[in-house]
């Protein structure tokens, strides 16, 4: 039997727009995944601690405030520091296309912009989870 994929959905930074984060959380649940939702205003440190304790396969970050270039790389960095580099990290929100190469170079696996269907995100997770599913 395929094991459950566990995903941490977190909102780093200070913006309070969680519509996207909540929609994606529901969609992932409906796709059979276990979603840990940590809510607003999470520091990279809080996100990474939670990811490790929850032993998630994926960290999904949503941000609309524009602080992504600062906060996303920090999450990847801290995961590495704590030996958890088998966690897939991706992001979504209002993120200009020109920032994407930089974010990818920092270890963010993918950036999903406004209008991305949830089905695409689900496929992405299934195809890219780093730990074996069986």
């Amino acid at each position: 039997m395929e094991r459950k994929i566990r995903v941490l959905v977190a909102k780093p930074g200070l913006d309070g727009h969680d519509r996207g984060a909540k929609v994606i959380a529901r969609a992932l649940r409906d796709a059979g995944m276990e979603v840990i939702y940590t809510g607003l205003r999470q520091t990279p440190e809080q996100i990474v601690s939670a990811a490790i304790q929850e032993d998630v396969d994926v960290v999904a970050l949503s941000i609309l405030s524009g602080a992504h270039n600062h906060l996303f790389p920090r999450v990847v960095e801290l995961l590495k520091e704590r030996g958890a580099d088998d966690v897939l990290v991706f992001g979504g929100g209002v993120i200009p296309e020109e920032d994407i190469p930089f974010l990818k170079s920092k270890g963010i696996a993918e950036i999903f912009g406004p209008g991305t269907p949830t089905s695409k995100t689900i496929e992405f997770i299934r195809a890219n989870v780093k730990r074996p599913l069986h």
Partner: peptide, 12 residues
């Protein structure tokens, strides 16, 4: 019970 998935929100 439908998808087998879950949203775990207590941690929040």
């Amino acid at each position: 019970p439908f998808s087998g998935g879950a949203i775990l929100g207590d941690r929040l």
